Simulated assay, not measured.
Amino acid sequence: MLSTIEQVAEARLVAAAPRMPTIPVTLHYDRQDPFAVRMTFPAPATLAGVEICWTFSRELLSAGLTGAEGQGDVRVRPYGYDRTVLEFHAPEGMAVVHLRSGDVRRFLAATAELVPVGLEHLQLDLDDGLAELMRDAC
């Protein structure tokens, strides 16, 4: 049975230059971390020259398709019907990317097939998680 989803999407990096460069980003979802999604930026697209991965909630990404969401390091909002804007805030600065909303919807639909929204808790092994936390507590 499939346990992860990966989808490459074309993102437009919003920069001070008039032309927004296109970069490939990868959206990831893993049923072992059912509440989260990850977005990976390739090394050539980052200031540090290394691959960067941001993790945030699937619910945030979904809600950001229809309205401005997020108050922390990751913020998501619609930009017209066909674009979704993601803002990534870090001490080094901020990155703003535009994704096609259709790509985001397709990714979220695939994640919902793997783990239906509202049933994420069924994927968690709370006994093992609690045992892991308590192992080093004594």
Rank of each mutant, 00 (worst) to 15 (best):
residue 54 W to R: 06
residue 104 V to N: 08
residue 38 R to W: 14
residue 77 R to C: 08
residue 116 P to R: 08
residue 89 H to D: 14
residue 1 M to K: 09
residue 51 E to Y: 00
residue 93 G to A: 09
residue 10 E to Y: 00
residue 121 H to N: 11
residue 100 R to Y: 05
residue 9 A to Q: 11
residue 135 R to N: 06
residue 21 P to S: 09
residue 76 V to Q: 04
residue 135 R to S: 15
residue 93 G to S: 05
residue 91 P to L: 08
residue 41 F to T: 06
residue 100 R to D: 11
residue 91 P to G: 07
residue 119 L to F: 08
residue 120 E to S: 07
residue 8 V to D: 09
residue 71 Q to V: 08
residue 137 A to M: 11
residue 12 R to P: 01
residue 48 A to W: 00
residue 118 G to N: 08
residue 21 P to T: 09
residue 131 A to V: 02
residue 122 L to Q: 14
residue 45 A to H: 05
residue 20 M to C: 04
residue 41 F to M: 10
residue 77 R to Q: 15
residue 134 M to D: 11
residue 27 L to W: 06
residue 62 S to M: 07
residue 66 T to H: 09
residue 122 L to F: 03
residue 27 L to H: 02
residue 25 V to D: 04
residue 80 G to Y: 05
residue 26 T to G: 02
residue 62 S to L: 13
residue 65 L to C: 13
residue 33 D to V: 11
residue 59 E to L: 12
residue 49 G to H: 03
residue 6 E to M: 06
residue 125 D to Q: 06
residue 8 V to Y: 00
residue 67 G to C: 07
residue 39 M to Q: 06
residue 98 H to C: 01
residue 6 E to R: 15
residue 88 F to N: 08
residue 29 Y to E: 05
residue 52 I to G: 00
residue 17 A to T: 14
residue 77 R to E: 15
residue 115 V to E: 09
residue 5 I to T: 02
residue 74 V to R: 04
residue 3 S to E: 13
residue 120 E to M: 07
residue 47 L to V: 11
residue 132 E to T: 14
residue 101 S to G: 06
residue 36 A to Q: 12
residue 10 E to K: 12
residue 46 T to A: 10
residue 15 A to G: 12
residue 67 G to P: 00
residue 106 R to H: 12
residue 50 V to C: 00
residue 97 V to K: 04
residue 138 C to E: 13
residue 71 Q to N: 10
residue 95 A to I: 13
residue 80 G to C: 04
residue 14 V to D: 03
residue 4 T to S: 14
residue 123 Q to T: 10
residue 129 G to V: 01
residue 43 A to E: 12
residue 123 Q to E: 15
residue 121 H to D: 15
residue 19 R to I: 11
residue 34 P to I: 09
residue 27 L to G: 03
residue 47 L to K: 11
residue 33 D to G: 00
residue 22 T to Q: 13
residue 133 L to V: 11
residue 41 F to K: 03
residue 69 E to W: 00
residue 123 Q to W: 00
residue 23 I to T: 13
residue 10 E to Q: 13
residue 109 A to S: 14
residue 35 F to M: 13
residue 42 P to R: 04
residue 94 M to K: 14
residue 4 T to H: 04
residue 3 S to T: 15
residue 66 T to Y: 02
residue 125 D to A: 07
residue 96 V to I: 14
residue 116 P to S: 06
residue 133 L to N: 03
residue 108 L to Q: 03
residue 94 M to S: 12
residue 18 P to R: 13
residue 20 M to N: 12
residue 103 D to Q: 09
residue 68 A to C: 03
residue 90 A to F: 02
residue 110 A to P: 01
residue 65 L to W: 02
residue 101 S to H: 04
residue 47 L to R: 13
residue 41 F to S: 04
residue 49 G to F: 07
residue 24 P to W: 03
residue 95 A to H: 04
residue 90 A to G: 10
residue 43 A to L: 07
residue 134 M to N: 11
residue 120 E to W: 04
residue 126 L to S: 06
residue 84 T to R: 01
residue 131 A to Q: 11
residue 63 A to P: 00
residue 110 A to T: 02
residue 106 R to Q: 14
residue 22 T to A: 15
residue 121 H to K: 05
residue 85 V to N: 01
